[in-house]
Write a protein that binds this DNA or RNA. Structure first.
Length: 811
RNA sequence: GGGCCCGUGGUCUAGUGGCUAUGACGUCGCUCUCACACAGCGGAGGUCUCCAGUUCGAAUCUGGACGGGCCCACCA
């Protein structure tokens, strides 16, 4: 079968994607006896569409899986979506024009279920359109009933271990969105503000304190100075009267106070910032909340009650001025934490939260990190840096709507926790009945449900469990767990990767995977991070439209593992050119293979031995690179060999033999055998990276003789030392070198490359080395006669060959 | 402030001790040679960020400086 003149990438990609699904090329066989290779990829959050970073990261993981499949492993390659939590809520609110806070919880959850399910179908199509090869039988959603059950089971087991506990803790709250938010949802924003020097009284003397948040005076619970600060030693143990307020607060020491800032004295309010939260805990300070959940001043603030934060700030400044307690005002510009979504300054409020106790396990987690094999190696340092910096237990409750409910009720009287029974999971305490009618502690019949849901990481940290059916299918789980490979971006080492290790340790006392492959970010052409506000977002669908999936993958394969990758359109163009070149070279090769009967000829031409010998090194290097997850190196090696050695040199060198009149001439058959073998194996080596075109060419010609239903389940080429031929390799390299030299000679004289050479005189000492290559050398350089003697004129740089070139007359 | 990574022709990049530093894009010249002009052949273009050290020898190792990136901490 002949290939069409032009490769229609779009049609081909669609066609083979459908084929792979239909033929179940990626199906995992649970009954397998083969070695299992399993992958745990990040379940994308449901944002409505795949972004370019996804496309690159998932392609990179896919390269490895396609390679392992060809090597002969049984592939366990699940694919999931993380529908829990904020991103989904945001997506739904935006898409449907609703607000979670203004809806009934049930209705909102129902809407989220419908919308995320729909969005996931679309996203899945996008992910498949770049040629990923997961087994869709292994698809999961983190909001699925079975996943909810698993997540709640994990919660209960952790509780049984004595590691789940509930306590009052300050949480980050967005007054605008009326919701608790996580630290990762914070953003720095620069504000111009005012440093207000206000007067606290200690006895009759003045103590000046600088603050940007005078409205928090009603919440003031202490003032601090640095124990090393000699100016304030005499204040120890004394109390300060808070201006405008009717109370005094203790003066305390803390090393965290910056002596150089303001007057070196700072007031602590519950709560102005993270440090206040810390001091509140550390110094056991009382709680005085001045700000309510809707961002207004609380009843307790007396005359300021009901004002917004800004109004209160102005009012208090005015009152301070009127009382002569405002000494000075200095404008300053500082960074404040705002909610990334609405840009509102966040507040801290206190409520009861669920925690997982794990600070005592830090050493264990470090040890686990050491056991994991990191690719690249240095990414381990980031993990360790994070683990060693942990200061708090893991807060897993969220005051949100769309997530896995915390499976607990409480006694309204004594606050006893009533945990759901394991065999009833999943449950929603707001809907389902508690397992007991009355409180086991105090006997009260008044039982209230928990409203909070779990942090999305509490569930998505279970992805290996989810995919391998932990506590569901123990036989399968034992086979799969621990996984072979985890792939994720370096930005979520401290979240997803770390949390997964935590859960895996708690439940199974094992590392969840053997290897971790960490990929970089996609940046814009200038090397900057993409963001909506900068307007420099590259949409994968545009890339796919303008180019194609294989080109996108080709570009994705060009980044070294762990390194960031800048989007350069020219790299996509390069990918397209490569596809064209591969197509054309194959077209040429297959044209000459139509009458090839198969089988290795007894006598191989030296040029063919040269080619096959050189190709062994390519197999070796490419395989080694894939084993180390170095797909960029694998790509480079094959790309370079294919384009330059195979096309530019080898195909040119065998043309004369291919066009021989006598089709059965052994020299021709030797060349046919060689292209059959080398091209097939080049296709295999490139198949993990460019699955569509490799399949297309394979199916057009090789499938009928190779018997594998798809190139992606064909066997990976194996390095064969017996095919290494030192003599042929030397001779071939020498000839290539001479050809280059002669091409240069002609090029410098503006001559056509087919311009004839009468006599080519080559230094005698090379006669033996190029024995058998003379005809090839003559044909490739349009030389009539080669003689060996003592020439003077040209010498090649690499081998020191000396040649004379006597041109035809009149050329 | 702490940790990690990076700094190679105009642009991107390979190379982790050794002959005249790899390749791609761009650029210039030639060639429409029977797979491919989305090509081929050839040319020009680099004090390998800087300084000091180790070494017979450093882009490569060590120390420092400068510049860029990411994560964390801080932000009264």
């Amino acid at each position: 079968m002949e290939l069409d003149k032009h490769y229609d990438a779009k049609a081909s990609e669609k066609k083979w994607q459908d084929f792979w699904l239909k033929e179940k090329i990626y199906a995992f066989n649970p009954a397998t006896r083969k070695k299992i290779f399993s992958l745990d990829t990040p379940p994308p959050t449901v944002s409505g569409s795949m972004h370019i970073g996804h496309a690159v990261a998932y392609s990179q993981a896919d390269f490895i899986m396609r390679y392992r499949r060809m090597v002969g492993d049984e592939i366990f390659y699940p694919f999931g979506f993380d529908d829990n939590g904020l991103p989904s809520e945001r997506y739904v609110e935006k898409k449907c024009g609703v607000k979670a806070t203004k809806m009934k919880r049930d209705e909102f959850r129902k809407l989220c279920m419908e919308q995320t399910a729909e969005a996931e179908e679309n996203m899945l199509k996008q992910f498949l359109s770049i040629g990923l090869s997961p087994d869709l039988q292994l698809r999961y959603r983190t909001i699925d009933k079975r996943v909810q059950r698993m997540s709640q089971l994990s919660f209960i087991e952790i509780h049984e271990m004595g590691r789940g506990y509930r306590k009052e803790a300050p949480i980050i709250w967005c007054p605008e969105c009326q919701t608790a938010i996580a630290q990762v949802e914070l953003k720095d924003k620069q504000f111009s503000s005012m440093f207000n020097d206000i007067v606290f009284k200690v006895g009759s003397s003045n103590l000046i304190i600088s603050t940007t948040r005078p409205e928090l005076l009603p919440s003031c619970v202490a003032v601090f100075y640095n124990p090393a600060d000699e100016r304030y030693q005499q204040l120890k143990g004394k109390e300060a009267k808070v201006p405008l307020m009717d109370f005094k607060v203790p003066i305390l020491e803390d090393a965290k106070v910056d002596m150089t800032k303001g007057t070196g004295i700072v007031m602590c309010c519950t709560f102005g910032d993270q440090t206040d939260v810390e001091w509140y805990g550390k110094h056991k300070l009382p709680l005085k909340m001045s700000i309510t959940k809707d961002g207004k001043m609380a009843e307790s603030t007396g005359k300021y009650a009901g004002l917004t934060i800004k109004e209160a700030r102005t009012a208090i400044i005015e009152d301070l001025k009127a009382s002569g307690l405002l000494k000075d005002q200095n404008p300053l510009s500082h960074f404040v934490n705002v909610h990334e979504r609405c840009g509102t300054e966040v507040e801290f409020i206190v409520s009861k939260q669920w925690f997982v106790k794990y600070l005592d396990l830090v050493d264990k987690f470090v040890e686990m990190g050491n056991k994991l094999k990191w690719y690249p190696d240095h990414m381990k340092a980031r993990y360790e840096n994070w683990v060693k910096g942990l200061r708090w237990d893991w807060c897993i409750s969220r005051q949100r709507y769309f997530g896995v409910p915390i499976p607990v009720w409480y006694c309204a009287k004594c606050d006893a926790e009533i945990i759901a029974s394991k065999d009833k999971l999943p449950i929603d305490p707001l809907v389902d009945k508690p397992p007991v009618k009355q409180c086991p502690k105090c006997g009260s019949t008044e039982i209230v449900p928990e409203k909070d849901v779990m942090d999305t990481w509490a569930t998505s940290s279970l992805t290996p469990f989810i995919a391998a059916k932990w506590r569901e299918d123990e036989k399968l789980f034992d086979k799969i767990f621990p996984f072979s490979l985890r792939s994720n971006g370096h930005d979520i080492i401290s979240f997803w990767l770390f949390n997964t290790i935590v859960k895996s340790w708690l439940h199974e006392k094992k590392l969840p995977w053997k290897d971790a492959m960490i990929n970089g970010f996609v940046l814009d052409p200038h090397g900057e991070k993409m963001s909506k506000s900068k307007g420099n977002i590259i949409l994968p669908e545009n890339v796919l439209n303008q180019f194609c999936a294989d080109a996108l993958r080709f570009w994705s394969a060009s980044s070294k593992l762990g390194e960031d990758l800048a989007y350069q359109e020219k790299d996509l163009v390069t990918g397209m050119k490569f596809l064209t070149k591969l197509w054309n070279a194959s077209r040429f090769a297959l044209m000459h293979l139509e009458d090839f009967k198969g089988g290795k000829p007894r006598k191989m031409h030296p040029v063919d031995l040269w080619m096959i010998s050189k190709f062994q090194d390519v197999i070796k290097e490419s395989t080694a690179a894939f084993e180390d997850y170095e797909f960029s190196k694998a790509k480079q090696v094959v790309e370079n060999f294919f384009w330059h050695t195979f096309c530019d040199n080898y195909l040119e060198m065998i043309k004369a033999r291919l066009y021989l009149e006598d089709k059965a001439n052994p020299e021709r058959v030797s060349a046919q055998y060689t292209i059959y073998y080398v091209l097939l194996n080049i296709l295999k080596l490139i198949a993990p990276l460019l699955p569509h075109i490799a399949e297309d060419i394979y199916q057009s010609f090789y499938a009928k003789s190779e018997n594998d239903k798809s190139i992606h389940i064909a066997s990976w080429p194996i390095y064969n030392a017996e095919l290494k031929d030192a003599a042929a390799q030397k001779g071939g390299d020498l000839v290539v070198d001479m050809v280059t030299r002669i091409r240069k000679f002609k090029s410098m004289r503006d001559m056509s490359l087919k311009a004839g050479i009468d006599v080519l005189t080559i230094e005698k000492k090379f006669e033996k080395a190029i024995e058998g290559f003379e005809d090839t050398l003559r044909a490739t350089t349009a030389t009539s006669r080669i003689v060996f003697g003592s020439p003077m004129e040209l010498s090649t740089e690499e081998f020191g060959v000396k040649m004379d070139i006597a041109l035809h007359e009149g050329v």
